[in-house]
Nucleic acid binder design. Structure first.
Lengths: 219, 219
DNA sequence: GCCTTTCTGTTGTAAAAACAACCGACTTTC
DNA sequence: GAAAGTCGGTTGTTTTTACAACAGAAAGGC
C-alpha cells in the first residue's frame, strides 16, 4: 500500500495531510488496493458499497447502458479523484451506475464511515480529512449541477456550447482539450454521435469554433 | 429563533440532536431566519454563499431562466431539507441557479463552516451534525444522479416513465402524487409542456398510466 | 354569482434529432 | 505491409420534439 502514498498525498481527500498521517490512516482504515484492466468494471450498477474509492492511476467512466445498448456517461474520473462516496451513507440504496476502466487503472478503497463515526476526531488528520471529504463531495455536487445545466439545454448546439464554454472557463483558455472522443462526448451529452458530429461541423462553418480531434478552440 | 426548534429537530441535519443541543448550536453558529413571499427569490444565480440554509416551511424551487424565458427546474425543496450546502466550500464559485419561493416560505441559515472548522468536535452534537451533513449531501448527490438518469433518456416518453417509476418506488405505491404541475414537470424534465401533455395522454391511451392533475397511477 | 386567472389538453406546422448506412483516414496487430 | 479495427464525418430518411395558437375546465377573487 505504501507505494500509493505519493499519489494519495496529491489527492484532494488527503490534501494537507502529512505522509506519516496518511500512513497511519491507511492502516487504521484498512485501506486496500486493486488494479483493473482497460474495459473492466470497477463497480456494477445495483451493487452495495461500503467503501470510498480513490483513483490512483488510469481513467474511469461512470456510465450506464440500457437494454438497447445506448450508453450514457455520467462523468469521468481522473487520478486523485474520489468516487462512490455518495452511496456509502445509504444502507438501502444500491449503485445507480457502472464504473468502468477506460484505461488500465488502480483504485484504493477504504472505509470512510470510520472517519466519520469513530470519536477520534481529536486527531488532526481526522478533522482535515472530514473537511476535505465535505469539500470534495460538494465539488462533485457542483459538477453534477453543471452537467444538468448542459443536459437541460434543448438543442444539441446549445448543449455543446454550454459544455465547451465551461471547459474553456475551467482550463482558463479558449483553446483546450476534452477528455472524450466523439462517441464518448455524445454519450456524455445524451445525443446521437452522427448528429452531434454534424452539428460541430456546422458550428465550425458558422465561425463559432475550431477543432481537431479532442482539441477545441472557441472563437 | 426558538420557535423553529421543533421544525429543525425534524430536519435531517439535526436528526438525533436533542432540543437543548440544537438551542446551543443555534446561538453558537449565529443562526438567522427570514421569511419569503410566494415568488420571491431566496438566492440568485451568481451570488456567493457562506451559509447553509434549511427550509423551515413552504416550498422552494431551484431553477434557472435563460434569456428567452425558458425555465429549467433543477429540483424542489421541501420543509426540513437543507440547500446551498454545495456552494459554501468554494471561495471562487458562485451559485449556478436561482432559488425561488413557490409558496410563502421560511428559511433558517447558519454558518456550517464553523461546524467543520472549529476543533470542538468533542461535543456530541458536532459529531452527529457532521455525520448528518455528510448523509444529506450524499443524498442530494444521489438525487442529482437520479435526475441525470431521467434527463439522459432520449424521448419524452422515456423521461416520463423513468421519472414516474422512481416516484412510485420512492412513495412505495403505484399510485402517488408529484410535487409539480404540468408546466413545472416539463421544466423539470426539460421538455415542452404541450408535447409532454400530449405524450402523457398517449401513454394513458396505451394503457401505461392513469392520471388526474398531479396524481398518477402506473399500470 | 361572475369575472379573471391558471391549468391542462388539442391540433397543425416547422424544426431538430435519431437512426442507418456508408466512406475515408488513421492505428493497431500480427 | 496487409488486414482488421477505430474514429470522425457525411448524407438521406424517419421519428420526435418544439412552437404557436386555441379551447375548455378548474380555481380563486370580489
Amino acid at each position: 500500500m505504501e507505494q500509493f502514498i505519493p499519489i494519495l498525498k496529491k489527492s484532494k481527500l488527503f490534501s494537507g495531510v502529512r505522509d506519516d498521517e496518511i500512513s497511519s490512516m491507511l492502516s487504521c482504515l484498512g485501506a486496500s488496493f486493486r488494479e483493473y484492466k482497460k474495459g473492466e468494471f470497477v463497480l456494477r450498477q445495483g451493487e452495495r458499497l461500503s467503501s470510498i474509492l480513490v483513483l490512483a492511476e488510469g481513467n474511469l467512466h461512470i456510465q450506464n447502458d440500457d437494454y438497447w445498448g445506448n450508453r450514457s456517461i455520467l462523468g469521468e474520473i481522473s487520478p486523485g479523484e474520489m468516487f462512490g462516496e455518495a452511496f456509502v451513507t445509504s444502507e438501502s440504496e444500491t449503485l445507480l451506475n457502472d464504473v468502468a476502466a477506460v484505461t488500465d487503472s488502480a483504485v484504493v478503497s477504504f472505509d470512510v464511515k470510520r472517519v466519520l463515526t469513530t470519536c477520534s476526531s481529536a486527531c488532526r488528520f481526522h478533522t482535515i480529512v472530514v473537511q476535505n471529504l465535505f469539500c470534495e463531495i460538494s465539488e462533485k455536487n457542483r459538477k453534477l449541477v453543471r452537467k444538468l445545466g448542459y443536459m437541460s439545454k434543448r438543442t444539441t448546439r446549445e448543449k455543446l456550447i454550454s459544455y465547451l464554454s465551461e471547459q474553456a472557463k475551467k482550463q482558463n483558455s479558449a483553446s483546450f482539450s476534452i477528455p472524450f472522443n466523439r462517441q464518448q462526448l455524445a454519450d456524455f451529452l445524451s445525443v446521437d454521435r452522427s448528429a452531434m458530429s454534424n452539428e460541430l461541423c456546422k458550428m465550425r462553418d458558422d465561425g463559432l469554433i475550431l477543432f481537431e480531434r479532442n482539441r477545441f478552440t472557441l472563437l
